[in-house]
Amino acid sequence: MKFHLAINLERMDDATDIRAVRDHTLKMVQQADAAGFEIAWAAEHHALEMTIAPNPFQLMTWWADHTDTIRVGCGVANAAYWHPINLAGEAAMVDVLSGGRLELGLGSGAYQREFDRMKPGLDQRDSYKYMQEMLPLVRELWQGDVTHNGTHWQFPAATSCPKPLQDKVPMWVAARSPITFDYAVENDCNIMCWPLAMPMDEAVKYRAQLDESIAKAGGWNGTFALMRHTAVYDNDADRATTIDAIRAALGRFGNVMIKKGEVVNGFPEQVALADLDGNARVDPSMLEENLMFGSPAQVIEKLKAYEALGVDAFIYYASMGLDMDVQQRSMDLFINEVMPEFT
C-alpha cells in the first residue's frame, strides 16, 4: 500500500495566524516527502476559511519548490469553475516547475453553496457533465492545437502553453456514483474516494462499484485510493482533542453541505450535531471506529483491512480543525510506528 497526504490551509477562527497555518502545512508536506509518501494533495475551495485553497496549482507549485521527490496532486479541481485552456496551462506549468511531478485530479465539487457563488444556476448534481467534457479536452490541449465546439465550452484552435514534461500525466477522478466510476475506468483515470464519516461498508460499496466498472470495460490498470480523516494518538488527551475537533469540524462541514446556518467572513457557523444525518455521523465511538483514528496498532489493523479490500493507496487526510501540534504528533506516530508495517 502506498501513502498520500491531503492537507489544507485551514482556520476555524480568526485568532489563528494564517502564517502559522502556512508554515505548518509546508512542514507536514516536507515530512511526508522525507518519509516516502507518494503524493501530496491540494484541494480547491472558495470563500471558506476551513479550506483555504482558491487555486490548488499555487499550493502545488509552492510545495514542489520545497520538496525533493513527493509528487504534487490537485485533489481535485472543480471542472465547472475553469476554462479548459486555463486549466490545461496552469496544470502543465506545475509539471514544468516541479520537474514532472504533476498528478491532475478533476471532480464535480461538493458544496452547492460554492456553486451559487462560483457558477450561479448550476446544480451541483449536474456538474459531472463539465468534468466529463473537460478531462479529454485537457489531454488534447496538451498534445497540440484543438478546436472545440462542446456543450459547455467553445473556442477556435488553441493549445496548452506550456506543455507538461511528462509524456502521460496521471489523471484522477473523484468518484462516488456508478456513472463516475464508469467514466474514470473508461478514460484510463485513477480513482480517489472519500467515504466521509461513513463506516467501512461505504468503502466496500465503492470497491464493488469499481469492480463492476472494470468488468464492463474489460480491464483497468489504474490506482484506487481511499481518503480518511486520520489521527494517530498514544494518550487520552490527544484522543479527546481529536474527537472534539472532528465533531466541531463536522458541524461546520454540515453547514456548507446542507446550507443550514450562516457563513460569516468565511467561517461557517457550527450546525447543531443533532441536525446532521443521524447520530451515527457524529457519535464519538462511531467516529473513532469509522475514521482512521486510534493507536498505532489500531490504525495498522484498519489499514490492513483496506489493503485486503483492494485499496492501492491510502490518503492521510490531516485537516479536521485539529490543533497543529496534535496533527504533528499524529504524523510522527504514523510515520514511525504505522508505515514500517507496510514497507
Rank of each mutant, 00 (worst) to 15 (best):
H4D: 15
A6R: 05
M12L: 14
T16D: 07
A20F: 06
A20K: 12
V21G: 04
V21N: 07
V21I: 07
V29Y: 13
D33W: 13
D33Q: 09
E38M: 06
A47M: 13
L48N: 01
T51M: 14
I52S: 01
F57D: 00
F57I: 02
L59R: 02
T61K: 08
A64E: 02
A79Q: 01
A79T: 00
G89T: 12
D95M: 09
S98P: 07
E103F: 05
G105K: 01
A110E: 08
D116H: 08
P120F: 02
L122S: 01
R125M: 06
Y128N: 01
Q132R: 14
E133M: 05
E140L: 12
E140P: 07
G144T: 13
G144H: 05
T147H: 12
N149Q: 14
T151A: 12
F155E: 05
L165F: 06
L165W: 05
Q166H: 11
K168C: 11
M171E: 05
A174S: 14
V185C: 04
N187V: 05
C189K: 01
C193P: 02
A197V: 15
D201L: 10
E202M: 15
A203K: 06
V204F: 06
G219C: 07
A225T: 01
T230F: 01
T230L: 09
R239G: 04
A240H: 13
A245L: 09
A248S: 13
A249N: 10
V256W: 02
M257I: 15
K260A: 15
N265T: 03
F267Y: 15
P268I: 07
P268T: 05
E269L: 10
G278T: 09
G278N: 09
N279C: 11
A280W: 10
R281V: 09
L287F: 10
V299H: 02
I300K: 13
E301A: 15
Y306L: 15
G310W: 08
V311H: 06
F314P: 00
Y317A: 14
M320H: 08
G321N: 11
D325H: 12
V326K: 05
V326M: 10
S330I: 11
M331R: 05
M331Y: 07
